[in-house]
Amino acid sequence: MSRAAALLDRLGHPGSIRLGTASAARAERLPTGLASLDALLGGGLLRGQVSEIAGRHSAGRTALACRVAATTTARGEMVAWVDPDNALDPAMAAAAGVYLDHTLWVRPRRPADALRAAELLLETGGFALVVLDLAESTRSARASCLVRSAAGTWTRLARAAQRTGSTLLVVGSSRQAGVTAAFGLELGPHRTRWSGGRGRPLLLEGITVRITVARSRTGAQGRTLVVHHAACA
């Protein structure tokens, strides 16, 4: 409302508009559901942009992506989960808060098909979040190279996302989208928490992960954050 009022005020006094003096329009945000991460990113992921989550096995990438999906579906928005690895566990996703009836699960057989599927979904519009899960597909150096070398793919995906306002969240072992990504989050070394103490574990309690903002178009680059992932009871 305040933006609309400010715009009307300025339109009412066209002589007062001077080129180069206007502040950048505030971009729409897609909250991640983690208050501290949202604060770090300035409100959440950028809508209509590509964001990335990268890390090794057990770095909490899928948990973070599920968290974003849960927050998005809780607002009634639609989420598409492109999963060429066929790795999503519906029961665990539901336990993590993802509303499955607001989720479209797409399981292409090859990473190249996954990129095409993501592009189709972005072009369709209406999906607030498209998760492209390439965690296994980008694990080996060769596969990662194949995905990365798809000429113009990431540019096309970024443009499609921008056109329709959908957010593309890429989950991988390493960052793939390069300069087309608005945010690149790298999930660093984790510490596993066990009940019963070290050396005599009884139950997996969770992991603690360090998130580093490796790339950001809105500042905060290089800042880190510690996130706890709790295992299911």
Binding site: S36, G60, A63, R67, A93, A96, V226
Partner: peptide, 8 residues
């Protein structure tokens, strides 16, 4: 601190 996710 930092918030918490459900591990999947």
């Amino acid at each position: 601190p930092g918030s918490c996710c459900r591990l999947v």
